[in-house]
Design a protein around this nucleic acid. Sequence first.
RNA 1: GGAGAGAUGGCUGAGUGGUCGAAAGCGCUCCCCUGCUAAGGGAGUAAGGGUGAUUAAGCCCUUCGAGGGUUCGAAUCCCUCUCUCUCCGCCA
Length: 433
Amino acid sequence: MIDIKLLRNETGQVAANLARRGFVLDADSYGKEEERRKALQVRLEDLRRQRNEGSRAVGRIKSGGVDPAALASEMERLAVIDHELEETEGAFRTIEASLEAFHLTLPNLVDASIPDGRDASQNVEVRRVGDPPQLGFTPHDHVAIGEALCGMDFSEAARITGARFVVLKGDLARLQRALINFMMDVHVAEHGYEEVYVPHLVNRASLTGTGQLPKFESDLFGIAKITDWYLIPTAEVPVTNLARDRVFLNTELPKRWVAHTPCYRSEAGSYGKDLKGMIRQHQFEKVELVTVTTPDHSMEALETLTAHAEAILNKLELPYRVMLLCAGDLGFASAKTYDLEVWLPGQNQYREISSCSNCKDFQARRLQARSRARMSDKPEWVHTLNGSALAVGRTLVALLENRQDEGGRISIPEPLRPYLGGRSHLEPRRGGG
RNA sequence: GGAGAGAUGGCUGAGUGGUCGAAAGCGCUCCCCUGCUAAGGGAGUAAGGGUGAUUAAGCCCUUCGAGGGUUCGAAUCCCUCUCUCUCCGCCA
């Protein structure tokens, strides 16, 4: 949620900022509704004050020996006030609820450092690391490689569930597990994150806190039995909610958490995209980094968090580029985002493998997550950041495609070998999976 | 799933219809005393919002798990829900 006071007082300025995202905020009609709210609130509070005074008067009359005439007239006066109070309260609640609902649909303000742009085509390449491999033959895509390794089966998954799922077996299932453990270990041992294990089902409040609800319900999988619960679309939701309703001491910050979870996304509205293979699935594994900082350190924390995600790509010797998202491509909760895009020879292009965002105080306001330097200080909103490090399924795809040889062997990068029993290669196999 | 107990400020914990936004303690802040690895004394210390001159004082409203209700008046009474704890059952 953006700062409501700022929205009220500088509606035009906020509207101009949000316009950079392509979000249209009608400043005039908002201003009018806000004026109505204010007038009603002032009236309401005055009525409540009158009622409180009257109630106290009744108390005084009763305790001081009953004077029936005074009591009757006071009660009569209060009945009139109560009547108007009830009406005003109803009107106020209606407008207040509608304003609150509206506030929850407003995306975060765009950071000043963000370039203009309408969509992904106008994102800015910040740097490029590593070169696409010179394979010297027509690269296979990960689907062909996976089938040759006899460990990637989409039709079985379709039978078990439906489209956009995969069954991994043998070397590939183990490779995925190796990647998860490798990433977790690097973040814990080398980057200093605290490993957390979190629920994979979350309630509406948590999803509202991080910004998926109320606006993006169609992207989520709900569950039939408990309608308040949803499968997590990312570990960002449960992990960032660790900060909910908390007041941190600045000395406790930054909090840096890492979690591995499966992620579930309905992929509504992406029917045509990436139908083949593991790139876009309803269920995928992800290792997620979350940082909670004081406001003065969050931009620096975004660079650090992004570097931590890049470290995984570097260790796995995967070529990638860093994109600074333009205003129009920024996610709902984010003020500034770097996407990491890995090179995929099978597609002959860079594809997103990580997204690192500074949400500044946007989620903190929804979450009531605050901090202060001393107990006697007034708490202020923390800043929250999150980033994939990395999307495991896509990392697996990238490894297969970048490290294949003409015979279909996959070379395992050095740091990953201990997680695969020391093996240096995966070999294609004959026969069925 | 069954039975019972509970949910109060950063924390612990009093408070069963009328200046209770809430005793006390801890913690924290400031001051004083003392003087050396500690202790004592005093004062202050919830949040959000409205009004005020958009950042003062003051005044006011709301909030004691959430939502309803009774009442002139609710932390206190009633109903529903959520969560926590204890015991039993079941279970990985």
